[in-house]
Design a protein around this nucleic acid. Structure first.
Lengths: 222, 222
DNA sequence: TTTTGTGAACTAGTTCACAGCT
DNA sequence: AGCTGTGAACTAGTTCACAAAA
């Protein structure tokens, strides 16, 4: 009915929870593949990785019919399809904004390279840092060169790792340079223009939410 | 009916989305306070920070009646109440597991200290690192000393920043040492024993989800 | 058989709208 | 008057359960 090659329009009718799970499924399949597994049912996948079988099927069904009834999914095929759906069938080029502790750590984070992301350059405003490079050799460029470098290096994604007070300004620069996808580590909500996707990783919120759990969850009476 | 001092049982009947938002509200109030604002209505708070007024009221109403009808909320009071609800009325002590790039960056992350968290120590297995310290002076301890240090330093929260392949093992050590709240940066789902709260920050999933947006979402028409 | 793909049922989360308090 | 706190209505997300396919 809906072959793997004719996809749905999918202009934001698929939720972020679903796209996050697609990435999880891809990781599971990679593990299965290197374990030599050739086919897997949604049931088995769910049991092995603590997921829900119906949800796996529903998530996948958004994008086509990838399974074979009575058999399950061919691991290699599904993996290839997921990589295509997620846009990972080409190398994505990433810039890190801010060459502080966190920015440098993210630029050298091995998980990104492993998944096929290419950290192309970092940007900072401090003259002392510009021209230098990270341990693994990612060059630190002048923020004022952003537009030029983005065009020349064909950068797809920006990671914002600058202090809170300059985050909004940096976001605007990044957007002006034509970048449409941003991973933001600075705390607080940024004002995001339409057509641009921002994912926030808010470390303070995460820790404070854990603190809540400790404060409330442990004992009501100790 | 439900005064600020008699709280609901709240043993996991309040969702994580709510607790995350409480942390956001606290940050907003801190900003308002330093801007000299004394009272604020849910309406004004919502407009200023792009939130929903009814949701703010509902979230707060879980924990008591903090507002004054016809007036709104007293910024200072509500801030104090939120800090208490979130368990931030004492300094929380944090250990970072793994003294790699990311671990070192997190140990020195200024946002944690600013919000009242105390990064007490790091743990690693590499002899070359043990005994050393981060730039800001957080000591790197031997993982084998974990239990002892956790007890002595009264550590509340662990941040896991070790390679994926040792994450499960480190989690088990951390739990065995009595820690009940964990912020995990390693990719993939960990097997978590009951009574322990883990928050995952999965950088690969975040980037791949952005990639999906680029692959599917780009053209709005133009 | 087995297992998918999917409507229907259910559960969780959000927003509305207003009674009631100040 | 203004604004909270909250049931009711709505929307989003998950899980069930089964007809149809291999």
């Amino acid at each position: 009915m809906n072959s793997p090659n004719k996809r749905k329009p999918a202009t934001e009718l698929v939720s972020e929870l679903t796209t996050n799970r697609l990435s999880v499924y891809l990781r599971c399949l990679t593990q299965l593949e290197s374990a030599g597994v050739e086919t897997i049912s949604s049931q088995a996948l769910a049991e092995q990785f603590h997921l829900n079988a119906a949800q796996i099927r529903k998530d996948l069904a958004y994008f086509g019919e990838f399974g074979v009834r009575g058999v399950g999914y061919y691991v290699k095929d599904l993996k290839r399809n997921l990589r295509q759906i997620l846009g990972l069938d080409r190398k994505l080029r990433v810039a890190v904004m801010g060459a502080g502790n966190l920015g440098l750590a993210l630029a050298d984070y091995p998980g990104f390279k492993r998944e096929g992301f290419e950290i192309v350059s970092m940007f900072d405003v401090a003259d002392a840092k510009i021209g230098d490079e990270s341990r693994s050799g990612v060059p630190i460029c002048d923020l004022r060169e952003l537009k030029k470098v983005v065009r020349k290096e064909r950068i797809d994604i920006a990671v914002i790792a600058v202090p809170a007070e300059s985050a909004q300004h940096v976001l605007e620069q990044v957007v002006a340079a034509g970048i449409k996808a941003i991973l933001n580590f600075s705390p607080g909500a940024l004002d995001v223009p339409p057509g641009v996707k921002v994912k926030n990783v808010d470390l303070t919120v995460s820790l404070e939410s854990l603190s809540f759990y400790l404060a409330q969850g442990i004992d009501d009476g100790h």
